[in-house]
Structure formats: C-alpha cells, structure tokens
Design a protein around this nucleic acid. Structure first.
Length: 490
RNA sequence: GGCGCAUUCGUCUAGGGGCCUAGGACGCCGCCCUCUCACGGCGGUAACACGGGUUCAAAUCCCGUAUGCGCUACCA
C-alpha cells in the first residue's frame, strides 16, 4: 500500500554492486535497472562496482557475463567497474582508522568458542550474537601469537543502543543493538568483509542512495554503524521487495529463465525485459503495463515501489514481449529476428536462401510470436524437408475420403494456375472452397497439414506462395498418394 | 530459536476512512473476428489472512494471532 513516502530527488549518485559469482539474475537486473532509472531521471550518476572480496567464488567469467548482460539490457554505467579486490589498501586504511578510535577490536575466539556462544544464546532464547572478549591479558595474546593465531577484527557494537533506518520503501526500521553481533570487519588474513567494504565504498564513492534487495536489510545497520564510526554521511536507503519463484521462494536458477542470459536465449527483446523488470515491485498506476525505456526513466519513482514481494511470471513477460514485438516496424522486426536466429545458430547449415526466407516470413509471423523462440514452431517447417507430425496426420486420416476430395480439389486448382502469386492462390482455393460448399476450416486444414506437416503454421496461402509451385505441388501429390493407398487397402 | 519484513482475485497490482456492492492487467472460461495457431474486440470467473479494537463509517488507522519470506558466516 502506498503511503505518503519521501521521494528520491536528484542528482543522485547510485550504484549497482553485484558479486561476480554467477550470471546476472533477474533480481540483480532489477536492482541495476532501478538504480539506473534513478540516475537517469535525476541527471545523476550510475556507478558499477564488483563486490569480489570473496576470492573463492568470484570469477572473471561471471564478471564478464554480468557486464555483457547489463549491456544487452542497455543499462550503461557512468563510473566503474570498480573492483573491491583492487581496493585492499582503501579498506586497510579504513580498518586502521576504526582501530585508532577503538571502534573495532581484535577477537581471538576460536570457532568452537563462537559456536558455544551462539548455542548458549539460542538456548536462552536470545539473539545468537557473538561478543568477543576485549580485555585479553597481554600474556594470553602473546601466547596466541606464539601459536601463530591471527585475530579477526570485530566491530564493537555500542551497547545499549539502536540504529534506525529511514527506508524509502519500508519506512522507519529499528534495530536494537542487542540483536546485532560484533560483526567481523577484517578477516584474520587482513582482508575486509562485505559489510566493511560495502560501507567504505558507499562512503568513499559519495553514494547518496543505496537501492538494493530486501535481503540486505539486516546488513544495513551494520554498514551504517561502520560509516558513522568512520565519520561519514550515511546515504539514504531503499530496500526493494524480493522477487520470488512460483513456489514463493526467492527466485533462483532452479526456477528456470531466472537470468538475463536465459531471457536473451529465450528470444526476449531487451526493451521488453526492461519493461517487465520494472514492473517487478513497481507500478506507475492501476493500468499501464507497456512502457518504453524513456517512459520508464520519466515515470519511475521510488514512492511507487511496493513493499511486498512479487512472483516472477514468465507468461506475463511473454505477453509484454509479444506486444513490444508488434510495435516494431516490420523491416526492423525482420532484422532483429534474423539477428536472434543467427546468434542462436538456427540458420547454420540452412543455406544462403535461409536469410531471405526469414525476411519473407517476418511479416507473417510478427503478429503471432511471443518471443523469437516461437519462430520455429510457426515457420520452421519451411527450412526442413516435409515431415508430417503424427497427430497432424491423424487429423487428415480421420476422414480419408473427405481429405482426398479436399486435397485433390486444391491440387487440381493449383496445378491449373497460370501464375504462382498470393492472390492467384487465394482466389483459386477460395473458389474451390465455394464449389465444394465446405466450411473454410474443413477445406483448408487438410491442405495445411499436407504442405506444412503441422496443424499450426503460417497462413496457408502465404505458405503455399513461399514454398514455390514445384515443391507445393510435390507435397500435394505425395499426400494424395499416401491417402490413395490407405483408401485402397481400407 | 532470535531479529526484520510482508500479507487485496491463481499471478502482478490500484487503493492513503466514506468515491469500494474493491478497479485494471495477465491467466482461465465463453462469444465475436477468422484458413489453424495467434492477434484484436466483447463478456465472465476470481481477492481485502484471521480476531479484537478506534470511528457515525475501515481494504484503508491501532493491537494481537496466523502464515510466508529474508537475515542469523573470517559469503555477498
């Protein structure tokens, strides 16, 4: 429910900060989009930062894929990409400053001690938080060091106290410090953890607004604490509702088509993907569902972002995609289709005429496609030798006599055609249809199957024209022969 | 277990006390258009989680309960 909410006004400095541990998922893409829209509509700056402090899981391949996916969506960044892995000295300096002010302390607890502390708190029905000992005797520390142990550095969460976030989406969210543990800011090897690095970067980069998924909300007080300890201006926060799969769990790979890469492979248009992504947790009004990218830039507002999670619906995406497809001029549509077919290898080994064939079928399929991936179902038969699908042939053989009459009738008229043009084909078949007194559907269906092998295809007249006289007549005759054989043995 | 967040048709949502016998979109069903499938048009199906308050009046405000989800690492 939209309450009275503060709006984010510009010019903002916002960032998208994925960790390169996989492909760009729908949730991440939406976060990138919202930040980008905010930057573009306030004349602000969109910064890209790679959070690759986890060296184990971060890969260059993933990084490249994320950049590529952002490019495909058309989300260009103004600064970056910055890599946290290259900013070790920045974080080290920050930790030094925190050390100097006593905001962090060396913690020597072993994993076992930590586990015990958490278990005890849990048994006590308290928050399972860790508080390290801050007053180790010097001789203990000397012993630890002699043993080769290195401490982690924990943030000394001030007690008692609370941290309040004024979230643009959620309103006031309060976290009692009792429930925030003394989180680690620097690992025993000296490298920074996420909460330290993110806070330092947001501060250093002058980020004015952090717009990210709700899964980060419990990190926010920790980052705010770090920023305050560092003496900086805390940015505004907006936590977007999560994106769910059909099972209401956080959308993930196992839900399928959950990454931008998948959407591209499945034949979606970037503009439609952006449109649909924008509608995940945001709405402009009670009815508008079609937006151009420019309209989104103009109309997007954080005040209209929903608080509750949204289930990602591929069907709806397909509908939106189909509508965008139909808005594209046919020439451009043909080129985009061709581009996608080439990229997916569909045209490989199909000969030099294939591209021309695609161009000629483009106007025929434009109104019918939801995504480019539907192309094969409608027009794929044109690129292959005739193969009559079993269930289609069943339709034809259900009434053999009728099919012979109809296909034979069509064949007779087409054979006599002086010229093989769309109009001539159409006139001839329609004339025959009237002579036989058939319903158009009954008359044309067997012929469709005879020439395309399918019950669903491009329009029958257009299909015949595209096939060419010779091949079309060959297919008619072949069907007639098969039917005659069945008739004879019956 | 703790903390946090959320809860309107199957789904996405509109909704800021009377305009709501709750609107739109997708899906689904039916009809029309029609050479199939689509597209397009028309119509229909379907929801305020529950219980208490506050108020002349609550989907809207408050409290509680339930349910769901997120977080709960030397991951991000």
């Amino acid at each position: 429910m939209a309450r009275e909410r503060r709006d984010i006004t510009g010019p903002v400095r916002v960032r998208f900060a994925p960790s390169p541990t996989g492909s760009l998922h729908v949730g991440g893409a939406r976060a990138a989009l919202f930040n980008w829209l905010l930057a573009r509509n306030t004349g602000g700056t969109f910064v890209l930062r790679l959070e690759d402090t986890d060296r184990e899981r971060s890969t260059p391949e993933s990084e490249a894929e994320i950049l590529r996916a952002l490019g495909w969506l058309g989300l260009d960044w103004d600064e970056g990409p910055l890599r946290q892995s290259e900013r070790g000295d920045v974080y080290a300096a920050a930790v030094d400053r925190l050390r100097a002010t006593g905001a962090v302390y060396a913690a020597w607890e072993t994993d076992e001690e930590l586990d015990a502390q958490r278990a005890a708190a849990r048994a006590d029905k308290r928050a399972p938080v860790v508080r390290g000992r801050r007053d180790w005797p010097a001789e203990d520390i000397a012993r630890f060091e002699a043993e080769g142990r290195r401490p982690v550095w924990r943030f000394a969460v001030p007690l008692p106290g609370e941290t309040v976030i004024e979230d643009y989406v959620r309103g006031t969210v309060t976290f009692g410090h009792d429930n925030i543990e003394d989180f680690v800011v620097a690992r025993s090897d000296g490298t920074p953890t996420y909460n330290l690095a993110a806070a330092v970067d947001d501060l250093e980069m002058g980020i004015t607004h952090v717009v990210r998924g709700e899964d980060h909300i419990s990190n926010t007080p920790k980052q705010v604490l770090v920023m305050r300890a560092l003496g900086g201006d805390v940015p505004g926060y907006a936590h977007m509702p999560l994106i769910l799969g059909p099972d209401k769990k956080r959308l993930s790979k196992r839900h399928g088509a959950a990454s931008v890469e998948d959407l591209q492979a499945d034949g979606f248009l970037p503009r439609a993907a952006v449109n649909a992504l924008a509608l995940l947790g945001w709405s402009f009004d009670d009815k508008t569902t079609m937006f151009t990218v420019d309209e989104l830039i103009e109309k997007f507002s954080i005040t209209r972002v929903s608080k509750s999670p949204a289930v990602f619906d591929l069907t709806k995406l397909r509908v939106i995609n189909g509508r965008h497809l139909r808005l594209i001029p046919t020439d451009e549509f043909a080129e985009l289709l061709l581009e996608w077919l080439r990229a997916t290898g569909y045209l490989e080994g199909k000969g030099p005429e294939a591209e021309d064939l695609v161009r000629r079928t483009a106007p025929l399929v434009k109104r019918k496609l939801s995504t480019f991936a539907d192309y094969d179902e409608l027009a794929g038969w044109l690129f292959r030798p005739l193969h009559i699908e079993e269930e289609a042939w069943e339709v034809v053989t259900r009434d053999v006599k009728h099919s012979i009459q109809v296909i034979g009738g069509g064949l007779g008229r087409l054979e006599a055609l002086p010229e093989w043009t769309l109009d001539a084909i159409k006139d001839a078949l329609q004339d025959q249809l009237h002579i036989l007194g058939e319903a158009a559907k009954d008359f044309l269906e067997p012929q469709r199957i005879a020439i395309t092998g399918q019950t669903v295809s491009t329009g029958i007249y257009e299909s015949l024209e595209l096939l060419g006289r010779e091949e079309a007549l060959r297919r008619y005759r072949s069907a007639m022969a098969r039917l005659a054989e069945i008739w004879a043995t019956a």
